[in-house]
Computed example of a mutant assay.
Amino acid sequence: MQNFIGNNIHALRVNKGLSQTEFAKITGVSQSAISAWERGESTPHAQHVQALIEAIPELVPDDIMSEELGYAKKILLHPNTRKEDVIDVPLFGSIAAGEPLEMLTTDEQYPLPVSIHQKHPHAFFLKVEGESMNRTLPNESYALIDPTLKEIHEGKVYAVSVDNSAATIKRIHVRNDGITLMPDSFDPTFEPSIFSNSDKTGHTLKIIGQAVWYTVPYGRSI
């Protein structure tokens, strides 16, 4: 049997620009449950469908539970109701816009406009935590990182791992004897981190990739 309920749920979630975690909060279940629905491994109970209808007033039960009248087919038949085509890309975890922190891995995904994905097909999202880059990347925004863009260019923003574990995201200033990780914040108390080629402390830096785009999750106030 075709997974039309899962297809309807996936079409609805992506069209609303929601991650699986955000969608899970609406329905009162876990992110793994949403993933299972979309893969056709299980189906939502009536109370979960009702929670969706209450959260998204234009929905009716058939949008989720019907194959012929479902949301997936509605989007195909009425393309004007569809947002820009999107594709789910990995959300690998959190990265610090502040003091470096250990990157937290997840199995989450988040929708990205296809037009952006075509330019950066290997890119992934990292959740920004902290205020040291809030002129460019708001706290709790999702920064899109392209791991193929590791060559350093003056003034660009990069995700960087420190000592192969902790990670941060900063604007890079290139110096003759090294690089400086520059904050870009409305808070003047954040200070740059200087890494010299002659540094004897043994700290190592590795470029994870360049930040090329960002988005603010659905429902977050700015």
Rank of each mutant, 00 (worst) to 15 (best):
Q2C: 00
Q2G: 10
N8V: 04
H10Y: 08
V14M: 11
N15P: 08
K25W: 03
K25M: 04
T27Q: 14
T27K: 11
G28Y: 12
G28P: 10
V29T: 15
A33F: 04
R39T: 08
G40W: 02
E41T: 08
H48S: 15
V49R: 06
L52M: 15
I53E: 07
E54G: 05
A55G: 11
E58Y: 09
P61E: 08
I64W: 00
M65D: 01
L69K: 15
G70W: 02
A72T: 01
N80M: 14
T81C: 04
K83L: 10
E84A: 14
E84N: 12
E84Y: 05
I87C: 12
V89D: 00
P90V: 07
A96S: 14
A96T: 00
E102V: 05
L104N: 06
T106C: 03
T106D: 11
E108I: 01
Q109N: 11
V114C: 05
S115C: 12
I116G: 07
K119M: 13
F125Q: 02
L126S: 04
K127D: 06
K127Y: 00
V128D: 05
E129Q: 13
S132N: 04
M133E: 07
N134K: 10
N134M: 08
R135E: 14
T136V: 14
T136R: 08
N139R: 01
A143D: 03
L144I: 14
I145T: 08
D146K: 04
E154I: 03
G155P: 07
K156P: 00
V157H: 01
Y158K: 04
V162M: 08
D163T: 12
N164C: 06
S165T: 09
I169P: 03
R171Q: 12
I172G: 05
I172P: 03
H173K: 12
R175D: 13
D177H: 11
I179V: 15
I179E: 02
L181P: 02
S185F: 10
S185N: 09
P188M: 00
P188Y: 01
P188Q: 01
T189W: 09
T189H: 13
T189G: 03
E191W: 04
S193N: 11
S193Y: 09
F195M: 03
N197H: 12
N197L: 14
T204W: 03
K206V: 10
I207T: 13
G209T: 12
G209P: 07
Q210W: 06
A211P: 01
T215V: 15
V216Q: 05
V216E: 08
R220P: 00
